[in-house]
Each structure stands twice: as structure tokens, then as C-alpha cells.
Amino acid sequence: MTAPTAFAISRERLMLLLMGLILALGMMSYLTLPKREDPEITIRTALVMATHPGLDLAQLEELVARPLEEATRAIEGVDEIRTRIGMGTVVLEVDLETSVPEAAIPSVFGEIEDDLAALAPTMPEGTRGPLINTDFGAVSIASIALTGPDFSLSEIKDQAEVLRDRLYGKEGISAVEVHGVQEERIWLETRSEAHGNIYTLLPVIAKALQGQNVSLSAGSVLLDGQRMPVEISGELRDADQIADLLVEVPGAGKGARLVRLGDLITVRRGTVDPAERPVFHNGRPAILLSVEMAAGEDITVVGDMLRGELDAFAASLPVGMAAELSTFQPAVVADSVNEALVNMGQTFVVVLFVMLAFIGWRQALIVATIVPLAVGFAFA
């Protein structure tokens, strides 16, 4: 009998205490262990992009790419810069040195962003950017789709923003992004039955619209030692006010006459056409919220909280509007964890019955106990 075995047998109570302690520590570690579908990956690369459709490739390299490279290379911690130049586009991939501590990466990225922002005014006129993206490694744990066949996308977006603000205040959530929002426009459309000379009135209509919403100082009033600005009312705030605008239309022999703009053309509020990156859920136009989890959190706990918040929010929505989970990683993680526990239990039972076929039940129980002890020791 070897010395470790003899020591364990001679101190039975101590061994039982140690095994119980290992199992307890393993269980505590399992319950507090962060769980997520995708591993946390430290991103050490920043993407910098600038566009200028009026420059050729040589001009882009000389006037845009080279200044960006020089400004970025001067920052401490930058290891390698890879540049791609396409038609009207410059993209830089900036890698940080592996020696940069993980905690210092955001500050280095912030320094890159500040230096490039200071460089922007020196870029050729018409240059868009430079824009920096350091968040392309983020992964959402859930996506929530808001739909409503009887509501406009603008009305659905308003409710989506309410839910976004509500989730931002919850622990464990780091970011909530809204997708599928379409930029709104006021559309002025001629009618098929419109008079033939309507197109000759377009300059008059444009002049009348340009004369509105002009911000001019109307002075100020000194009241109890405080100077209060005086504002002029009359701003056009919606499509109905634009339609009610009076336009001076030249008349035949009778001079100019005032005509309501809505009587000349159709004024309506709508979104850009065609839609830019629209989102659909179950075949219906939708606004989508993607929810990202903070580092070090348990995805199953955050998922339970998210379900509760979504149920409470859905109950407050107008009749005909719905908020549903489109993707939900916490359920996938919970199934995977449960499957691992079931596999461990099956392994324990199989080992126990195999050992019972060859040795006594006490020895078989000792051998089978190695399975949960090994798992507990790994977690501890």
C-alpha cells in the first residue's frame, strides 16, 4: 500500500471533509460562474474609414490614407497598420501591440479617435470621416422585434426607444441597439389630376417653404434680473402645417392670389423610399432591438430578467402592437448546461453499475464518486 493511500485510509474523517469541501467549492463556483454562448474575445484591432467619392486612387493615397497612417502610427501602443484603398474609400486596420494591457486598450482606442478627430479638418473638402469602429466584436444575447400592422414604423420606433431606455437601466446589460429605423421625410407629390402648369409653380412653392423655419433673433426681455429670449412662433412642425401653408400664385389679369399648398399638391409624411436595410419579423416590417450583455455576467440570470422586462413592457403596448423575442441565446445556454449535467449523471450511473458487476457495492460507489469529485475539483 502506497503512502498516500495509507494516509487517506488512516484519516477517513479528514478525507470525507476534504471531499465535501471540494464538492461545496465546486458547486459554489458553478453557481457563480459567468455563462454565455460566445466567449469574450479581446479585440485589439480598430477599423478606421474615410470616404471621398471625388478623388482617384492616387489622390486618396496621398491626401487621405497617408495622413491617417502618420497620425495613427505616432500613437504609443500601435503595432501594425494595414491599408486598403478602393473607389472613393480608405480603410485602415490598426492592430495594437500584444504588450498593451487589456485594461488600457479602451484608452488607446480613445487616443486614436481623438487624434483622428483633430486631423479631420485638414482632410480634403468633401471627405467623410475619418470614422473609427472598435465595437465590431460585440455579440448580442437577444433580439426583440416590435411589430404592428396598424402602426407606422415611426410609431413602432417610439415604443422601441422606450424599451431601449428601460433596458439600459438594468444591471447586466451593456448596450441596446435599434435596427430597421428608416429616416423620415416630408413628401410633396403632384396629383394625377393636377393642372398642367403646376410644374411652373414649383419655384414659387420652394420659395415659400424656404421662407419658413428661419431662426431670427427677436430680442430678449429682462425679468427679475434674468434675461429671457423672445422666440417667434410659426415654425412648421408637421405635414399638416406644411399643407396649410399659403402660397402666392400668380393669377391671369387679377394679380397674385393666395392658395393653400395642400390644394395644389399632396403633402404627406413618410420614410425614405426605397427603404434602407429594412427589418422583417414573420414577414412583417419591424423594428429590432439587439441586446448585449456586460462582461462577467451569467447569461441565464440576465435572460430571466430580460424575459420579465419584456413581458411587463408588452402588457403596456397599444392594442395591435407586439414585442416578441426573435433570438434568445440564454435558452440555448441553459439547454447546453442542462445537457452537460445530464451527461455527468449518466456517467456516474454507468460507472457505478459497471463496477457493481465486478466488485462490491462499497468499492463501486467509491469509484463512481470519482466522477462528481473530478468535476467539483475542476470548478473549485
Rank of each mutant, 00 (worst) to 15 (best):
P4E: 07
T5D: 08
A8E: 06
I22L: 06
A24N: 08
A24L: 07
I43R: 08
T45R: 03
L47K: 04
L55P: 01
L55S: 03
E61F: 12
E61L: 11
E69V: 12
R73M: 05
I85L: 04
T89A: 06
T98R: 14
S99R: 05
S107H: 14
F136A: 02
V139S: 04
I141M: 01
A145G: 04
G148S: 05
P149D: 09
D150L: 10
F151M: 10
S154Q: 13
R164L: 03
D165I: 07
V178K: 12
V181W: 12
E193C: 13
L201D: 00
L201G: 00
K207Q: 06
A208T: 01
G219F: 11
G219E: 10
D224P: 01
S233Y: 15
E235I: 13
L245I: 03
V247P: 00
E248I: 06
V249H: 03
L258W: 12
L264M: 06
R269E: 07
A275E: 15
H281K: 14
N282Q: 11
N282H: 10
P285Y: 00
V291M: 09
V291Q: 05
E292C: 13
G303Y: 00
M305G: 05
R307A: 07
R307E: 10
L310A: 01
A312N: 14
F313H: 11
A315N: 08
P318S: 03
P318T: 01
E324C: 01
D335P: 07
N338H: 13
V342S: 15
M344W: 13
L352I: 12
L356E: 02
L356V: 04
R362W: 10
V367C: 01
V375W: 01
